[in-house]
Amino acid sequence: MNRHARRLALLIAPAAAVFCAFWLLPMVRIAVLGATGPRGLAAYSAIVTDRRYFDALVSTVALSVAVTVATVIVSGIAGLFLARNRFPGRGLLTAMLTLPLAFPGVVIGFMVIMLGGRQGLIGDLSQHLFGLRIVFAYSIGGLFAGYLYFSIPRVILTMIAAMEKLDPALEEAARSLGAGPWRVLRDVVIPALKPAIISSGAICFATSMGAFGTAFTLATRIDVLPLVIYTDFTYSANFAMAAALSIVLGVITWLVLGLARTLAGASAAAAG
């Protein structure tokens, strides 16, 4: 090893050491632990064989997919609007839409309570308008609202950035060839945004799959996977099962992100 390589190895050693000692080793440990519980290796397949875990998986995936679709649509429209129009207050509007970027899950859960809780804004409004107090914070609607809350800002930012890179002449060219607004959206805008949609959609999905703080603050009735893991660990002291499920959940989110990166890269390359 020459002097240069030795220096580089020395410089990255501290980060590598921290990572190995506190992340890689513990992960390997719980991966092993997951297989050494009462169920043995079957703990890893329990997520599809055990009714309770499988239901949790299905509802978590369904919720995450729904949130991802809704977020991409809402953020796509808003991002398009903010990227294409110049008006006073646009900067402020963008800033407000990205404000919740650094809110932790617990705070987002609380925001949903402020909206749809027993003393929430929606309840006040519905009581006032229809004489009926709508409370949705503690149901699946609350989770949906919460996940939407943390997903929108991130996806909007990605959309604005992608839209600003899009040459307006492309849309004009399509129109000059006779394409109406929907056609332009389908043939020009969406293909150009595809890499951004894939990657931000994947992040949105993976985040929703692993979201704990929001669900922890809100969920009283719905079993999403992270809450099941937490319950098994804390209340049932079922360490092996919690470990196995954590690994499965981690692998799912990691795979989704990795797959999205490959796809987004490929479609970005295809889009030139």
């Binding site: 990255i12 992340w23 890689l24 513990p26 992960m27 440990r29 704990f212 893991i229």
Partner: peptide, 24 residues
């Protein structure tokens, strides 16, 4: 190494927390 370093944010925090507490 670059890929590995990003893993702690690609995997749910709950898993990282669980792994740390079960190990240390």
């Amino acid at each position: 190494v670059e890929e590995l370093l990003v893993l702690p944010i690609a995997v749910p925090g709950l898993a990282t927390g669980l792994a740390l507490i079960l190990t240390y």
